[in-house]
Amino acid sequence: MARAGGITNAVNVGIAVQADWENREFISHISLNVRRLFEFLVQFEATTKSKLASLNEKLDTLERRLELLEVQVSTASANPALFS
């Protein structure tokens, strides 16, 4: 009887250890995916920042060109002699 009880305890311990390892594996998978998600977010932030910076630069260039054209058009319409 005592021998059978020891075997049962050993089996239970083995099952518990296996379940613990499975839980640890699950947690490691989840943490790995969260890390990948974090890396994606960091990379996405950098890419978005660079794209927004280029977008801002383009908008500034367009704004300056538009202001220049507005001044030229207003000057030409106000005084055609100065246009040439």
Partner: peptide, 13 residues
């Protein structure tokens, strides 16, 4: 559009 406007201004000049 802005290139077109600039071209028109140059043509007028």
């Amino acid at each position: 559009r802005m290139d077109g406007l600039q071209q028109r201004l140059l043509t007028c000049r």
